[in-house]
Every structure is written in structure tokens, then in C-alpha cells.
Design a protein around this nucleic acid. Structure first.
Length: 673
DNA sequence: GAGCACTGC
């Protein structure tokens, strides 16, 4: 079996020649499904490392495990540890995942392998769903966010003997926070074992983090070589001006000159995906009558569940499937049967500018780690080929890993939670990668202005409570204020509805215009917050039905999630003694309450139809999805949920208010300006 | 008059 290495090219390859069919693809037989579960486990590449892994976990406090997706570390390692007795005496082996689906699906698979019911010996915990048994569960899969939250309740995580942080190279905010806290915990509880599972390129960075760059006595790296199938890599010889067009051409060449197998294309967003598919459908009529058909599919998060599922259905016999996707197909979802990957080399990420407090979506080159991950998507069920739409010299210049999320995000919530853990001096926290000092300062200022943190840097009484609440700080602030405005019931709903995204489904073309009309039925003239309230109440009144959602162009998924979040937050409100009163239709009182959270998100209308932010006087455009997009607010003043920089600075979820309502917060502007 | 990478508690 041949293994590919990062940066290597298939022999003598330029993309064009490969797409012309000059390079053969090495084939190898996939794992047969006819073996029993036990012997299938033993056939996994990881199995030969079993004893070494167990020895290292025994000897070292921190073991960094390097291995490609598919080598079996996620499913096997916790089982090896269990078999070796690490879950004896009531101890639990934890394995964290960045995503909910991964935690649930891996747990189900391991339960099958161990011949037990899910939720018994093997369980999982994600938000809204705890399928585990406090006394019986030995192996627990959970999202890293849940485990971080657990440190708020049990700062030493004392029920766990081993904690495996899986997919650590993805560097989500919670992974980074967890690693920092776990390093601290290990000083107080050295018996706790940590396993950091990562892709190749980040391993030494993690090792250095845990050894502080010197003593290696307590940490080690194990490399689990081997993946199921080889993937040949082809680079373009010269960069291209239009990678969307090039992607379409490459699909076309593969289809005409290469053997069977589905094609996965990585682009950055919906607009590019649609353009690529348009190019391809224009070419379709020129396909010879006898040639296999080409099935064109888009895949991005904005699609409905049915549309997304289409990408997973096998192509009909004699036809080839082409999935043009965003980064969602890089790690979040896995499509079987992909043999060809086309990688644009770009990704759209959200970044945060701490000096303006603005977040923006920008298209940036991917990292080497991402490029390798994308290529690996071609080798899941058999050998494959990855066509990179950039030269190998460009690959070599890419950053090794994606910038950790914590360096490009608003730190308000993370800092509040660290303080709740007793880490008051966040400047001294041992970050795996330190965020910009300005981000920390801005978040601290915000926490002081919101009265979560006192002038002494310690949490206030309300700050302690808000830290426990799984919502943004300004939204939690409103929940607490709702007691004074007697509008807890409506405010709670609004908070949940602003938290879920894409409530309204607006398709392209004529269907979009129809959806637009449906949306107007819920419109409240005060603005989007009350419109969202109307939508939620109608959803509940009509029995939370998915067909009702469909006929009103609403997302059943989003609304169901809002219902789940609402019942979770309701428990917090009850615990904190916050009444859930109705405002009895008094929209004025309700909007006054909104200001208690949004007072820093105020803007005034100017004659050209744009707005100016109260803080900073930035020019703001109302997002086209807002009910205030077409209307001037009578008072001339609004508050908004969030602002984001695209081509322009846009505000989303906007509601009209009176300027007088800001007065009680005036003195705070002076402090935080 | 015009727009949305992806997660997570």
C-alpha cells in the first residue's frame, strides 16, 4: 500500500496531464465487511500500536497521538484503555469531539463494538442530550464545549482517569480553553492522563506546550502511520486567475478522461458554488449521447435538510456525482464514494477585529493541514486523486495550520468563564496560542461595562450567574433585566430566536419572492426582534409542525432548536429566581428591556437611508433580511443584535427604539468609550 | 434595493 506525504506530487504530474488521464491510480482492496467485529478491530492500522499506546499512557502524563482520519484512534483508543483497566473503580474515560454528530455517531459505533447498549457502558453527552449513566458508563464521548462547562462544576474533573482531546488540530475555542485548563488541572492532579489527538503538523507544538519546550519526561508523541487508501496529489503548474472556472473545467476533464468515481469540489461559498454549477450545466449538452451522465449537486449549510441529503445519495448506475461544496465537507460531514477531490485552496472564515469590535467574513488561503484533510476525502473508500488548483510552490508557502479560533474571535464569553473558574488574571493564563492583547482588553472592558466584572477584576454577583448561562453575555444581561420590566416570557423567546440562525428560508428566484411574502405575515412594525417572537409563537400555536414550517418558508430545524434552547434557559431563569412574566402585549416595555443588553448596539438613521452607530459613528447598512430594510424608523433610532463587515458594514436583527431609553446607560458610554 | 464559511454551550 502506498502512503502519500504532504507536499509530494504524483510522479511527473501537472494537473492538466493528470486530468488528461496520464497518471494511473493505484488501487487497493477495501476492508472486507465479512469479518466479525472483533477481528475487524484487530485489522485496523492502529491495532499494532496497542501495547505501545498503553505503555505510553501508563508512563507519561501527556501523550500526543498523531494519525490520519480513519486510522481508528477515536473508536479504538478508549476501548484499549477500558480493557487495560483505566475505567476501574468508578473512573471514566472521556473522549471529546468538536462536533455533536461526531460525539453521537462514534459513541454508537463503539457501543456496537463492545456489544453494549448506548448509554450504558458507552455513552455520550452533548447539549440537550445526555445518553450516559452516572454509575455505569465507562467510556464517555462528549463535545469539548460540554467538558469545558463541566470544569465550572468540578474544577478538577475528578471523575475522569483519562481525557482524550480528539481532533485537537482543529483548534476550536473550547479545545484551546480546555487544554489550558487541563494543563492546570494536571499540576494539581498528576494521576490524570491526557491524550491529545492531532494531525501531523501540529504535534510538536502541542508537545512544546505541555513540556514548556524543555523537559520531555512527562509528554511524548506517538505516530500512527497508515490510512486505508492512497491518494495521489496533483498540483497546477501555474496559478489560475479564476479558480471557479478552473474547477468546472477540471470536473469536465475528469469526467471525460478518468474512470468511474464521484467528484468533490471545495469552493468558499454559495455564490461560487452556484457559478461553478452554472458553468458545468452549460457544458452538459455537449456531452456525447453515449457518455455517462453527470449529476450536479451543491452542498452548503444554507440548504434545507432535503437538499443536503441529496449529496449523500449514491449516483444512479452509469452516472457520476459531482458535489460542489463549502468547507462543510472538509470535516463536518463525510460523503462516501468520493474518488476525486478538487481543492480551490481557499476558505471563508470569520475574523474579529478587536479595535473596531467588528467581525467579518473573509476569503483566505487554506492551511497545509486543511489541504491534506481535503485530499484525504478522496481516499475513504478506495484510492483516489486530489487536484489542487494551485502550484506545489504555493502549497509549500501555506501556513501549517489554520489560525486557532481563539485568536480571531470575541473573547467576552471565554474570559467570563475563565474568571468563573477562578482564573482572575487572564493575562497570565497559559494559552496554547495567546489571543491578541487588544482582544483581551476589549473583552475585559466590555465585561466591566456590563457589570459582570468589578473594577477589581473579580466577578460580580451577577457575573457569577451569567457565567453559568449558556448564552452571550448581553443576552443574559437582558434575561436578568426582564425581572424589572416584567416581560420574562417574551424576552426569553426573543433571546432563543436570536441565538438560532437562518429561521427564514429564502431560496433563489420566484420561490424566494414567495418566501418573502410568507415572511411578511409575521412582520411586527417595531422590528425584527418582535417579528421573531411572532414566528416562534405561531410555530408553537400550530403544533410545532414541519409541514407548517415548509408552507411558511421557515426552518423547522432552527425553530425546533429554539424550542430546545428555550426550555434549557427556562431552567436557568427558575434557578436564578427570575420570574417568567408576560408583558401582556406591551411592546414598549419589551423593547425598553432589550436596551439593557443592546445599549452598546445603538444606531441612528441618517437621510441617505443608512445608519450611524452611537459608538464610533460607523456607517451601517441594514441587512436585506430585516423588516426595517425598507422602512425608516419613526423615532430615527434602532438597536441591533449584531454587526458584520462584508462589502459593507451590516446590522442584523434590528428594532426601533426611542432615544430617551438610552439615557440610563449614558454614564457607561463615558466609561467604556 | 439586495445577501448568508462552520461549529459549540
Amino acid at each position: 500500500m502506498q502512503f502519500w506525504k504532504p507536499g509530494t506530487q504524483a510522479p511527473g504530474s501537472s494537473l492538466d496531464r493528470i486530468a488528461d488521464g496520464e497518471t494511473s491510480v493505484i488501487s487497493s482492496a477495501p476492508l472486507s465487511a465479512s469479518y466479525s467485529v472483533q477481528s475487524a478491530r484487530e485489522r485496523l492500522p492502529i491495532y499494532k500500536h496497542r501495547d505501545k499506546l498503553l505503555y505510553c499512557v501508563e508512563k507519561y502524563g501527556v501523550v500526543i497521538v498523531v494519525g490520519q482520519t480513519g486510522c481508528g484512534k477515536t473508536t479504538q483508543l478508549p476501548q484499549y484503555l477500558n480493557e487495560a483497566g483505566w475505567a476501574a473503580d468508578g473512573n471514566v474515560i472521556a473522549c471529546t469531539q468538536p462536533r455533536r454528530v461526531a460525539a453521537t455517531s462514534v459513541a454508537a459505533r463503539v457501543a456496537t463494538e463492545t456489544g453494549s447498549m448506548i448509554g450504558d457502558e458507552v455513552g455520550y453527552t452533548i447539549r440537550f442530550e445526555d445518553v450516559s449513566d452516572k454509575a455505569r458508563t465507562r467510556i464517555l464521548y462528549l463535545t469539548d464545549g460540554i467538558l469545558f462547562r463541566e470544569t465550572l462544576l468540578d474544577p478538577l474533573l475528578s471523575r475522569y482517569s483519562v481525557i482524550m482531546i480528539d481532533e485537537a488540530h482543529e483548534r476550536t475555542v473550547y479545545t484551546d480553553l480546555l487544554l489550558g485548563v487541563l494543563k492546570k488541572i494536571r499540576r494539581k492532579r498528576p494521576s490524570l492522563r491526557l491524550i491529545i489527538s492531532s494531525a501531523t503538523l501540529d504535534a510538536t507544538a502541542f508537545l512544546n506546550y505541555f513540556t514548556n519546550g524543555d523537559s520531555v519526561d512527562d509528554a511524548t508523541i506517538i505516530s500512527l502511520e497508515g490510512r486505508m487508501h492512497p491518494v495521489d496529489i496533483a498540483h497546477l503548474q501555474e496559478p489560475v486567475a479564476d479558480y471557479v472556472l478552473k474547477a468546472a473545467e477540471t470536473v469536465w476533464n475528469i469526467h471525460q478522461r478518468q474512470g468511474p468515481g464521484d467528484i468533490l469540489v471545495f469552493l468558499t461559498g454559495r455564490e461560487e458554488i452556484d457559478r461553478c454549477l452554472e458553468h458545468l450545466s452549460e457544458m452538459l449538452p455537449t456531452l456525447p449521447r453515449t457518455a455517462p451522465r453527470l449529476k450536479l449537486l451543491a452542498l452548503h449549510a444554507g440548504l434545507s435538510v432535503e437538499e443536503q441529503l441529496a449529496a449523500f445519495e449514491p449516483a444512479e448506475k452509469g452516472s457520476r456525482k459531482v458535489i460542489v461544496s463549502t468547507n462543510i465537507a472538509e470535516a463536518s460531514v463525510t460523503i462516501e464514494g468520493i474518488k476525486y477531490v478538487i481543492d480551490s485552496g481557499f476558505v471563508k472564515i470569520r475574523t474579529y477585529n478587536p479595535s473596531s469590535g467588528l467581525s467579518s467574513l473573509v476569503t483566505v488561503p487554506i492551511s497545509q493541514a486543511s489541504a491534506i484533510q481535503r485530499a484525504g476525502r478522496a481516499g475513504r473508500t478506495s484510492s483516489g486523486v486530489c487536484y489542487r488548483l494551485y502550484p506545489s510552490s504555493v502549497f509549500n508557502q501555506l501556513g501549517t495550520s489554520t489560525q486557532p479560533e481563539i485568536t480571531r474571535t470575541d473573547l467576552t464569553t471565554p474570559l467570563l468563564q475563565l474568571k468563573s473558574l477562578g482564573i482572575d488574571d487572564v493575562m497570565k493564563f497559559e494559552w496554547v496560542t495567546a489571543p491578541p492583547a487588544q482582544s483581551i482588553l476589549r473583552a475585559l472592558e466590555g465585561l466591566v461595562a456590563a457589570e459582570m466584572v468589578g473594577e477589581d477584576g473579580r466577578l460580580t454577583v451577577i457575573g457569577e450567574k451569567v457565567a453559568e448561562c449558556p448564552v452571550e453575555v448581553n443576552l443574559a444581561r437582558m434575561l436578568f433585566a426582564s425581572k424589572d420590566y416584567r416581560c420574562g416570557e417574551e424576552l426569553l423567546t426573543i433571546v432563543c430566536m436570536t441565538t438560532v440562525q437562518d429561521v427564514f428560508i429564502i431560496p433563489d428566484g420566484a420561490a424566494g419572492a414567495m418566501a418573502e411574502l410568507e415572511r411578511r405575515k409575521f412582520t411586527a412594525e417595531e422590528g425584527d426582534h418582535l417579528t421573531l417572537l411572532n414566528v416562534y409563537n405561531a410555530f408553537v400555536r400550530y403544533g410545532r409542525s414541519s409541514s407548517w414550517c415548509k408552507s411558511h418558508a421557515l426552518s423547522f430545524r432552527a425553530l425546533s432548536r429554539a424550542v430546545a434552547i428555550r426550555s434549557q434557559l427556562l431552567k436557568y431563569m427558575q434557578r436564578f429566581g427570575l420570574p417568567v412574566d408576560s408583558c401582556q402585549g406591551d411592546a414598549r416595555r419589551l423593547r425598553q428591556c432589550l436596551i439593557s443588553g443592546y445599549w452598546r448596539h445603538g444606531a441612528r438613521w441618517v437621510a441617505d437611508g443608512t445608519y450611524r452607530s452611537i459608538q464610533g459613528n460607523t456607517m451601517l447598512y441594514v441587512h436585506p433580511t430585516s423588516v426595517l430594510f425598507t422602512r425608516k424608523p419613526k423615532s430615527g433610532w434602532v438597536i441591533f443584535h449584531e454587526m458584520e463587515e462584508t462589502k459593507k458594514t451590516q446590522i442584523r436583527i434590528v428594532t426601533e427604539v426611542d432615544s430617551d431609553w438610552f439615557l440610563p446607560y449614558g454614564h457607561r458610554y463615558c466609561k467604556s468609550a
